[in-house]
Design a protein around this nucleic acid. Structure first.
Lengths: 345, 345
DNA sequence: TACCGCGGGACAATAAATGACCATATTTTT
DNA sequence: AAAAATATGGTCATTTATTGTCCCGCGGTA
């Protein structure tokens, strides 16, 4: 594979630009279909006329079908996008990034999608797809899946194709936490995932950052203790990774709290734990659900996060090496390697 | 492989044209180096200016190097041409042709080079290369290689790279025959091959089409009988295939003879035997050396011939299924399949 | 209804590819 | 040693392809 690509690159470098351009278009269409050429041109920052010619071409090739509301992928186009993805991975050197990251972070697997989440929101969707695909790959009947909140994990939830019949799978939130907006709460996302998956779900209605005594009394509640036990016995943990600087929840008190944490060296956050750059824990938010020590018993820990800004956060969280899988984007991947560079060279 | 090509063809069909064009240029250069752009443009029938841009490009890519006497392949270019060859095979469907031919003719292997020997003399050189490469692949120490005459086999001889040290290999002419021009006589070619190979050679100075009694007496000569015995114990036979209509040797009597043979149904000739379309023998030229019945004991019989005109001749000769390998060109390959078509469908 | 985004047509401006020379150096042939 | 053939590089008008822009009418949706 690598070999063939090098060959092509040598004999006709202009080709790879062309393929990449067309791939970008196809991919964008696949995310926003149906869509028109103007909107496409704007978000891709390519001349409208260029898009137009390409669209005509892709239609001729039978990859795109157009109706009055815009162009969409045909079945053939859908297949092609998926297949082309592997190809583009090589062009962009994503494959190399994946390997380097896997190697230097000691992970079981790393998936890197092209682009930068900070610059193009579609990249987040792409990560979501990759994570969803991976999740479905490893998922088995009887599994319990614990998920956290966050916009990235939400994309994962939305990327899971609807499964019509039922499955013996249980989706639960990884931790309590009701502070955030409803749409990105762990509970909401767990329900969403369960719904698409055709699985069951249980929710945990517990606020985070509660006091020691409150936690104690809550955990004595039989219904709550039952669900927390279930959570702790999860087979798969799917979690996002937050940048410590940007976690505030909007409230003034947590903003102040965040500042203190950052001053204490926190750079990354995941499932209620703040990590410093070297991977050690700066603070654990008081709540119920999964704690760092529980990770050992979980078969698959999947971390999903992207964007250059989150590079150090990802590095901090993943340095604990409890993750088996990291799904990120090109920008973050490169940034992490750069952070790692001076050490590993 | 097939899969990747389809992918590329779908996403950017213009690519294959481009690659093919560049490949053609590289290949031509590799045959005629050093060569200038004008000559190149003429023989390739491409605009001079176009050649020029492509040449500039290929130089930039480090595939071509130019001095004042013209452009030549660099080491990298040479490697690339070879690798690209496999690629182009797929583009042109040569791979399919090879498989179909192999299947319908029941051969051990078929190698098809792109182009038409009748239209572009370089194609013959290309066949020569392919045959030379194959020959070197299967050749072992201690082998005896028997070769026939003809322009095509001469190209094979010339395509064999010079081997500096010596090898325990013996090259002999497959049959007697001094009628033809010196350069394409079996003896000359055997010597040439041996020289390039770093092998020994023995010659057989016997005219063809001799009378029964003359043959008898010649074969009683100890020196001649020794070499004929050697020839009959050859491990590899490399032979050309002639079109019955075009074999005349220039002399009036053989011309007349040829006419008679064609009238009798002969379409193809190989190592002194005339074959009719269904593969049966019309006539065997009286001479010493390999006869059809000897082929059974020869491990590898390699037939080399190309050009649309020879399609029926090749089919006739190869129909005996004594060949293990056929090396031909695209035009002949397609023509043969067409001849075969009505039968095999 | 008014609006937004859709495809498609049209066209000028711009960029790229091509064809057709010439000048001159070098190699090869005579 | 001269002559012929071939080589590269430069130039430039011409043709062809690409691109930017604007306009039009259509069909959903707010």
């Amino acid at each position: 594979m690598r070999h063939i690509i090098n060959l092509l690159q040598k004999i006709s470098p202009e080709l790879i630009e062309l393929i990449e351009r067309r791939y970008t278009i196809l991919r964008h269409v696949s995310h926003s279909q149906p869509i028109g050429r103007r909107l496409l041109a704007n978000s891709l920052k390519i001349g409208e006329r260029v898009i137009r010619s390409e669209l005509d071409f892709l239609k001729n090739q039978g990859l795109l079908g157009g109706d009055s509301s815009g162009v969409s992928l045909t079945g053939e186009g859908e297949v092609l996008v998926r297949e082309l993805y592997e190809f583009v991975k090589y062009f962009r050197g994503l494959h190399e990034i994946e390997c380097s990251l896997k190697e230097s972070l000691g992970l079981g697997r790393v998936i890197v999608v092209p682009g930068d989440t900070d610059q193009d929101e579609l990249v987040k969707k792409e990560m979501g797809r990759a994570a969803a695909r991976y999740l479905q790959e490893i998922m088995k009947e009887g599994h319990i899946i614990a998920v956290t909140g966050g916009t990235t994990v939400r994309e994962v939830a939305e990327a899971i194709p609807v499964f019509s019949s039922e499955r013996d799978i249980l989706v639960v939130p990884a931790r309590g936490g009701l502070g955030e907006a409803l749409e990105i709460q762990a509970n909401t996302i767990a329900a969403k995932i369960a719904k698409n998956l055709g699985a069951q779900y249980r929710l945990l209605h517990v606020p985070d950052n509660i006091g020691e005594e409150a936690m104690e009394s809550l955990s004595r509640d039989p219904r709550i203790s039952e669900i927390t036990t279930t959570i702790k016995s999860a087979n798969i943990l799917l979690h996002g990774i937050g940048n410590a600087k940007e976690i505030s929840g909007g409230r003034a008190d947590t903003l102040e709290e965040t500042r203190r944490l950052v001053a204490a060296g926190a750079v990354g956050e995941a499932f209620g734990h703040y990590f410093s750059r070297d991977g050690s824990i700066v603070k654990t938010i008081h709540s119920l659900g999964i704690r760092l020590t529980d990770l050992k018993t979980i078969e698959q820990v999947i971390g999903v996060a992207g964007g250059k800004k989150k590079a150090d956060a990802i590095l901090a969280v993943v340095s604990n090496r409890m993750e088996t899988v990291l799904i990120t984007d090109e920008a973050a991947g490169r940034a992490i390697l750069e952070l790692l560079g001076p050490l590993s060279t």
